[in-house]
Design a protein around this nucleic acid. Structure first.
Lengths: 220, 220
DNA sequence: ATCTAAGCTGACCGGTCGGTCGGTCAGCTT
DNA sequence: AAGCTGACCGACCGACCGGTCAGCTTAGAT
């Protein structure tokens, strides 16, 4: 499994330590790794800078610790979506809305994850980011495969490509939320539930009108 | 040489100046604003650090200049997609594939744009990023509205939401490309054309099998 | 009452940061 | 040949960076 960066540390949280992680998560997500100094984090957490080094070996180690906290959060969400009794369309709807809700709930650490996926170096943290995303992705592919096997959805679609679109729709919403809210046409920028419902609807039914049968039904 | 044309445009490019912008674009996209020092840029461009300050007032000004270059590139793409004679489905296909190709072609500056949309402060650069994205977005909404007016696509879908999904699909592909290539199920990670075609297909036709008519066709 | 160890701190280090300065030089004008 | 200008440079600045360290405080076990 994904025991790549399993920090075998199971000590007491320590009041100061949690404050450090919490503050660091906020600052890192706002300004990025290089945009935050250890002094900033110390001030935000209400501790001394040296104290951070008492709990974490380096700035990089603190960063990875923050990302690890996010990984644990995501893993918890995935457990809830294991029931196979629910019909496909409902499972898809639940996944999309739960996924988006999770992103928005942990927006700080998720923004960190996105930022990490954009950077070129820093293998360790990137591997962690890949790990979190990958696990989420595999889960969705399984749901889609079940749907195909049951004959509910078209079998000529690549389930991995479908999963990419579903996940991407949520990720993009989160990422572009502020920009979207500036565009007059967009009325769903502050209504994630409506966005999730609407996007799932489009994915399931398709954009094309059922009446129209012109040069649209190309299937390669 | 091209002294006569110098008056038409703003200023002469200057060999060193273009080298600075080019190098800065690469470095900024790789490591972010704070991850790059002016010395790095100077070395990459083969000029002195003081020379950069001869051409640009500050590091921030250089950053904005790099983003502005990207804005100009995007504007050029949008001009090509103005023909209204093409039927809707074909226009949609063209937009998606052209949009994705443009992202990949100018991956460096586009990565900058994404990074900027993730940052919290820095109003000036963010406004620019919003501007570029917004313009692209409005164009796509118009295409979709035309499709609705012509009755080719369903009128009960929010065109702005559809546009978000189409653009988001491409953005997410770019962003997650490296992660996707690590996932065994994903076979399209290095085939953007196939991804664009496949995603458009799903958007147009929908995931659901036309035969299946169980509890799926919910329309809110 | 004493020991111990973790939690925590202010002062400090070498190095790098963005930015400035005085000055050189090639080329153009007059 | 004098005058001017934009491109360019090496040396330098104060501020701030990540990280270290000796020592203080506190809480629990003995």
């Amino acid at each position: 499994m994904s025991d790549t960066l399993a920090t075998a540390r199971e000590r007491a949280p320590s009041r100061g330590e949690t404050a450090i992680i919490k503050g660091a998560a906020r600052l890192f997500s706002e300004r990025g790794f290089d945009g935050v100094s250890m002094r900033d984090i110390a001030d935000a957490a209400g501790v001394s800078k040296a104290n951070i080094y008492h709990h974490f070996a380096s700035k990089q180690a603190l960063y990875v610790a923050v990302l690890s906290a996010r990984a644990a959060e995501t893993r918890a969400l995935l457990e809830e979506l294991s029931e196979r009794e629910v019909p496909f369309a409902e499972r898809a709807r639940r996944f999309v809305s739960a996924h988006l809700a999770s992103i928005l709930e942990h927006s700080q650490t998720f923004r960190l994850l996105l930022r990490e996926s954009l950077s070129e170096d820093d293998r360790q943290a990137r591997a962690l980011a890949d790990d979190v995303v990958g696990e989420n992705f595999q889960r969705l592919v399984t749901i889609l495969r079940d749907g195909q096997r049951a004959g509910v959805i078209r079998s000529d679609f690549d389930p991995a490509l479908c999963a990419t679109l579903l996940v991407g729709a949520n990720v993009f919403f989160f990422q572009a939320q502020r920009i979207l809210s500036h565009i007059p046409e967009v009325t769903f920028a502050n209504d994630p539930a409506r966005y999730a419902a609407g996007s799932t609807d489009i994915f399931l039914r398709g954009l094309l009108s059922p009446v129209a049968t012109d040069s649209t039904g190309r299937s390669k």
